[in-house]
Amino acid sequence: MSGFTFTIDGAEISAEEGQTIMEAADAAGVYIPRLCDHEGLRHQGGCRVCTVKANGRSASSCTEPAAPGLAVESETPHINKLRRDLVEMLFHEGNHLCPICEASGNCELQAMAYRLDMTEPTKFPYLEPCRAVDASHPDIALDTNRCISCGRCIRASQDVDGKGIFGYVGRGIHRHVAVNAPALSDTDATVADFAISPEVCPVGCIIRKRQGFERPIGEREFDKAVIGAEIERKRDE
């Protein structure tokens, strides 16, 4: 059994043995929203934005293996509401001020809020935590007000760069991404690291100094297309 099919929202999807639901969906041009998953990094299943119902049970599609005959629900009002609430809570848990953020327009969190229609008056309180900015490194700054603890930088640094600059500390709501040293300047981080590259941090937490606001409004990544459009285009082709 190497190839088989399953369904997402009734549409038949081909999959290979060992693929996750999301990997098979991506290959078929069906976009499932995600924040903590990124191509080239191992799956974590942390943010739960990619939650789907697989045979009626909630599962993170980036970690759940595809199986023959599996019936997956993804783009339903119920699931999209769960996703929207998760994204909204991420906004409220940190200090996300889009109008002053240099990641605005290239930010996956913001783009996900657009896609999931986060425009209704909010029901959640703003936690407005006091978080530090680490500007110790000559070329890199960390504004942890914007961190959503997706851990993409952790996996990129450990698995791709082989450095382990970032790691999780704390438990529960206090769990957050931290630098594996007193400050970033005490590590061997460089702008050439994959973990520091613009594609890894989905928000504006990892900042490359002297590069802010390079692309004007109208030419930024998500000015041109809704997040996920790249994958959905595959379906049309």
Partner: peptide, 14 residues
């Protein structure tokens, strides 16, 4: 909608 720039005073660090 969310306080905007004036809300920056809510979480002046430390």
């Amino acid at each position: 909608i969310m306080g905007g720039l004036p809300a920056m005073r809510n979480a002046i660090m430390h």
